[in-house]
Design a protein around this nucleic acid. Structure first.
Length: 562
RNA sequence: GCCCCUAUAGUUCAAUGGAUAGAACAGGAGACUUCUAAGCUCUUGAUGUAGGUUCGAUUCCUACUGGGGGCACCA
C-alpha cells in the first residue's frame, strides 16, 4: 500500500510540474489522522518556495478518487496529506490474516538467504545468570525476525570452554577438594569460579598456579586436570542445555573456544604482517585505522578472544556452508573489541568481514549495581525464572479456582514476562531489571499479551456454543478501531528487522492487545442475535493470529488458557 | 587523559526532522447481574544545562554536566 501511495504521489507531482523529491509516508501515531500520512507537500514547498498547504491542496485534488482502497484524502496541520483507507481494505486484510494463519506477517525481504545468528555465548564453568537470559532473548528474537523475513536461519552458540576463567574455576575446585569423581553441579562450579577468580586477583601464588592450569588445559598436559576439566565441562553444558530448552532456543551448531583457539593461533602466525610481534605478544595495530591495538596471541603464545573470534568466522563457513549474512549478538562490552576484530578480519578474510554484523546490545543492571560472577553477585537465570513462575502460579490459582494450571504453563508465563521486559525497549540500551514490575504481570507485559490471546480463545469457545462462526458478509459501515491496527502487522515485522529493533514489534503488539481489550469491553462478540457478531468474531480471530505470530517472533509462547 | 554509547513523568519504556511528546506501574476517581477483572473508563505528572542549524528539533550539530563501556596480553 505504501508503494502504491508513493507512486501515485510521484505521478501527481510530475503532472503538477512540481519537483520530484524524497518524502515520507507513515502511519500517523494518532489514529484520527488517518491511516497513512505524507509530508510531501511540506518538503516540496521548501524546494519550490510556496505555501505547504497550497501545494497539499493541489496534490490532494490530483489524487482524489484515483487510488484503489483510498476513500478519503485530507489536508491537515501544517500541510500533511492524510489518507483514509476504504472499508473494503480492512475486510480484505482480515480475510488474509485468517487465511495465512501461521504465515501471516511473513515477508520476502531475506527470502532464499542463509543467515547465521550467534548468540547467548555463555562460558562453561561460570554461572548462567540473567545477563545470559537477556542476550539469549535478544538473539532468539533477531533469529526469528530473520525467519519471518524468509531467511534460512542457522542458530549458533559459541561457548568459552577454555581460557583464564576456566583455569580459575579449576583452581577453585582444587582448593575446595573436589575431584573428577566427586558430586558436581552448576552451583558448585559457580562457587569454585568465584573462589578462583578472587584468588587470581588477590593472591600472587594463586595467580601463578592459575596461569599454569590455563596452559595445561590448552595443552591437555596434566591427566588430573584433564579429568576434572572434562567433568566440569560436561556438567556445565548439560545444565545450559536445560536452560535453552526452557527458553525455547534450539541451536543448529555449537562452537567452542577450544577448537577456535588453535585455528586462531595458526591464522595469526601465518599473517605476520597483519599481526606483528610486540613485547613478546602478537598484536593487531588498530591505531592505523583509528582504533586501538589489541593482543591476539599473548606472550605465552595462547590465543586471546580476538584470535579465537577470527578463527570462528572461518569455522562457521566451513561447518555451515557458505552463508549470506552473519550476525553476532553480544553485550556491548565487546563492541569496541569487535570493531578492531572486524578490521582485522577484513584483512585476512575480506569476504567474511563484509557480511558480518555485530549487535552490541545493552546489559542488565540491577538497582544494587553491576552483576559480577567473580564476587558471586549474580542473579542465577533459573532461580529468577522459577521465582517469577511461582508468582504466576499463585496468580492463576487465585483468579481461576476451577482451572488446574501446571508448572509448565507457569514457566511459560514467567518467560513471557522476562522476555517482554527485555525486548520492550531499544536493545542497544542498558535495561534496569525491576523485579517488582516483572512480578506484577499488570499493564504492558508479556502476560498481558498472553492473557489477551487466551481471552480470545475463550470467546471462540463461547461463539462455537452459540453457533456463531466467522463471516464477512455483514460488516458495519465504519471500521472498528482495531481494524486500523491489524493490517499493519507485516510492515511492523519488516521494520523491526530492518532496524534491528524488536521493540517495535513489542510496542505494536501491546497497542493491538490494548485495542482489542477496549473492543472487547465495548462489543459483544459471541452473541448469536447480533448481525455483526460473525464479523466481530473474525476480527477477534485475526487479532489472536496476529498476537500469536508476533509473540512467536519475540520467542514468547501463546497459551490457550491462563 | 583519549575513544564509543547514553540522558524523556516519581519509576520502567515509546515517539523513520513534523500535528496536542505516547503507554504502563505507582498516586487519585469510576463502571460492571454480561464472552477470563492479568481487563475496561477518566485523571495528576516529563524532553539534563547552554548555544546552533531548520518553516518546524526529544530527534541533527557544538560545548558542558551526569551515567555506562572501552583504552596490551580476561571474555
Amino acid at each position: 500500500m505504501q508503494d502504491v501511495l508513493r507512486e501515485a504521489i510521484n505521478e501527481a507531482l510530475t503532472e503538477l510540474g512540481l519537483p520530484e523529491i524524497d518524502f515520507t509516508i507513515e502511519h500517523p501515531s494518532d489514529l484520527t489522522h488517518g491511516d497513512y500520512a505524507s509530508n510531501v507537500a511540506m518538503v516540496v514547498a521548501k524546494e519550490a518556495g510556496k505555501a505547504p498547504r497550497e501545494i497539499a491542496e493541489q496534490v490532494r485534488a490530483a489524487l482524489v478518487d484515483q487510488i484503489e482502497y483510498i476513500e478519503k484524502i485530507e489536508v491537515a496541520g501544517p500541510g500533511f496529506l492524510n489518507f483514509y483507507l476504504a472499508r473494503d481494505f480492512f475486510v480484505k486484510e482480515t480475510v488474509r490474516a485468517l487465511q495465512e494463519q501461521d504465515k501471516w506477517g511473513r515477508h520476502d525481504t531475506w527470502k532464499g538467504e542463509k543467515v547465521v545468528v550467534e548468540y547467548t555465548d555463555p562460558n562453561p564453568f561460570k554461572e548462567f545468570h540473567i545477563g545470559h537470559v537477556f542476550t539469549n532473548t535478544v538473539g532468539e528474537s533477531i533469529a526469528r525476525l530473520f525467519m519471518m523475513a524468509g531467511a534460512e536461519v542457522k542458530r549458533v552458540n559459541y561457548q568459552g570452554d577454555v581460557g583464564l576463567h576456566v583455569a580459575c574455576a579449576l583452581y577453585g575446585l582444587q582448593q575446595m577438594g573436589i575431584t573428577a569423581d566427586a558430586e558436581l553441579d552448576a552451583k558448585l562450579l559457580g562457587m569454585a569460579y568465584a573462589r578462583g577468580a578472587t584468588a587470581n586477583k588477590e593472591d600472587e601464588t594463586a595467580q601463578q598456579r592459575i596461569r599454569e592450569i590455563n596452559k595445561a588445559v590448552y595443552e591437555r598436559s596434566d591427566t588430573d586436570i584433564n579429568a576434572l576439566y572434562d567433568r566440569g565441562r560436561a556438567v556445565s553444558l548439560e545444565y545450559f542445555e536445560d536452560i535453552y530448552k526452557l527458553l525455547g532456543t534450539q541451536f543448529d551448531d555449537y562452537f567452542f573456544e577450544s577448537e577456535a583457539g588453535p585455528r586462531g593461533k595458526e591464522i595469526v602466525l601465518s599473517h605476520p604482517n597483519i599481526f606483528p610481534e610486540s613485547e613478546g605478544a602478537h598484536v593487531f595495530k588498530g591505531e592505523e585505522y583509528g582504533l586501538h591495538t589489541r593482543v591476539f596471541l599473548n606472550k605465552e603464545g595462547l590465543p586471546t578472544y580476538e584470535a579465537k573470534e577470527l578463527a570462528l568466522a572461518k569455522l562457521k563457513e566451513e561447518r555451515l556452508g557458505e552463508y549470506d549474512h552473519s550476525v553476532v549478538s553480544t553485550s556491548n562490552e565487546i563492541t569496541e573489541y569487535f570493531k578492531v576484530l572486524l578490521r582485522a578480519i577484513s584483512l585476512v578474510y575480506p569476504e567474511l568481514a563484509a557480511k558480518t554484523e555485530h549487535i552490541g546490545h545493552g546489559t542488565v543492571r540491577l538497582s544494587t549495581g553491576k552483576m559480577s560472577s567473580r564476587t558471586g553477585q549474580v542473579i542465577v537465570g533459573l532461580d529468577f525464572i522459577s521465582e517469577i513462575a511461582d508468582a504466576a502460579m499463585q496468580k492463576m490459582q487465585a483468579s481461576q479456582p476451577d482451572f488446574q494450571p501446571d508448572s509448565i504453563l507457569a514457566q511459560k508465563i514467567a518467560i513471557a514476562a522476562i522476555k517482554y521486559a527485555t525486548l520492550k525497549g531499544n536493545i542497544l540500551q542498558d535495561a534496569v531489571f525491576d523485579k517488582e514490575q516483572a512480578l506484577s504481570f499488570e499493564g504492558n507485559s508479556g502476560p498481558y499479551l498472553q492473557y489477551t490471546y487466551a481471552r480470545i480463545q475463550s470467546v471462540k469457545e463461547k461463539a462455537a456454543k452459540e453457533g456463531v462462526s466467522p463471516q464477512f458478509a455483514q460488516v458495519p459501515t465504519a471500521p472498528y478501531e482495531i481494524e486500523r491496527i491489524i493490517y499493519r502487522f507485516t510492515s511492523v515485522v519488516a521494520s523491526a528487522l530492518a532496524d534491528r529493533e524488536p521493540h517495535q514489534l513489542v510496542t505494536y503488539l501491546t497497542t493491538l492487545a490494548s485495542g482489542f481489550n477496549t473492543f472487547y469491553a465495548n462489543e459483544k462478540i459471541a452473541d448469536a442475535g447480533d448481525e455483526y457478531a460473525p464479523y466481530k468474531l473474525a476480527l477477534a480471530e485475526a487479532v489472536a493470529q496476529t498476537l500469536k505470530n508476533g509473540m512467536w517472533a519475540l520467542g514468547i509462547e501463546a497459551p490457550e488458557r491462563m
